[in-house]
Amino acid sequence: VFVDDHLLEKVLELNAKGEKRLIKTWSRRSTIVPEMVGHTIAVYNGKQHVPVYITENMVGHKLGEFAP
């Protein structure tokens, strides 16, 4: 499973602090992992960042699938 390192670091850091804030990313190719559930990730679609709230059903899919 591929997840960009910088994105995973941000998610794990927020989980350690117990925070839930918006994470901006250009990494549409990253796979959604269970650690991301409950976070809102702003995924770049080529024009703007689209906020995507991550749920359990999204695990295993790519971030780009949810930012048309």
Rank of each mutant, 00 (worst) to 15 (best):
Pro51Asn: 12
Glu9Tyr: 09
Ser27Ile: 07
Ile41Tyr: 01
Thr40Gly: 05
Val59Ala: 06
Val37Gly: 03
Ile23Cys: 03
Gly60Pro: 01
Thr25Lys: 02
Asn57Cys: 14
Arg28Met: 05
Thr25Ser: 04
Pro51Leu: 11
Glu65Trp: 08
His61Cys: 14
Leu22Trp: 09
Arg21His: 12
Val3Cys: 11
Phe66Asn: 02
Val1His: 15
Gly60Trp: 15
Lys62Val: 13
Asp5Met: 15
Glu13Asn: 08
Val52Leu: 10
Glu56Ile: 12
Gly64Phe: 10
Glu13Phe: 06
Glu35Asn: 07
Arg28Ala: 05
Gln48Leu: 10
Gln48His: 14
Asn45Ala: 08
Val52Phe: 06
Thr25Phe: 01
Gly38Trp: 07
Val1Glu: 15
Leu63Ser: 01
Thr40Asp: 07
Lys24Asn: 08
His61Trp: 07
Asn45Ser: 10
Val37Cys: 14
Gln48Arg: 11
Ile54Cys: 14
Pro51Gly: 08
Leu12Pro: 01
His6Trp: 15
Ile54Asp: 00
Met36Thr: 01
His61Ser: 12
His61Gln: 12
Lys17Ala: 09
Leu63Phe: 08
Leu63Lys: 00
Met36Val: 01
Thr25Tyr: 02
Gly64Met: 09
Thr31Ala: 14
Glu35Ile: 14
Arg29Thr: 11
Leu7Val: 03
Glu65Met: 11
Pro34Lys: 14
Thr31Asn: 13
Val43His: 00
Asp4Tyr: 01
Thr55Ile: 12
Thr40Trp: 10
Ala16Met: 10
Leu22Glu: 09
Ile54Ser: 00
Pro51His: 05
Val37Gln: 08
Asn45Thr: 09
Glu56Gln: 10
Leu14Val: 03
Arg29Lys: 14
Arg29Gln: 13
Lys24Gly: 02
Leu22Arg: 07
Ile54Val: 14
Thr25Leu: 01
Val1Lys: 12
Val1Phe: 05
Lys17Leu: 13
Thr55Glu: 13
Ile54Gln: 00
Gly46Pro: 02
Pro51Ile: 11
Leu8Trp: 14
Trp26His: 14
Glu35Tyr: 06
Lys47Leu: 11
Ala16Cys: 13
Phe2Thr: 07
Met58Gln: 07
Val59Cys: 14
Arg21Thr: 11
Gly60His: 10
Lys47Ala: 12
Ala67Arg: 03
Thr25Asn: 02
Leu22Lys: 07
Val52Glu: 01
Val3Tyr: 04
His6Val: 15
His39Asp: 01
Lys62Leu: 12
Ile32Thr: 04
Glu19Thr: 09
Asn15Val: 05
His49Val: 03
His49Leu: 08
Leu63Glu: 00
Tyr53Asn: 13
Val37Met: 14
Lys10Gly: 05
Leu63Gly: 00
Glu13Met: 05
Ala67Asp: 04
Glu65Gly: 09
Thr25His: 02
Leu8Glu: 02
Lys20Ile: 07
Arg28His: 06
His6Ile: 15
Leu14Ser: 06
Val59Glu: 06
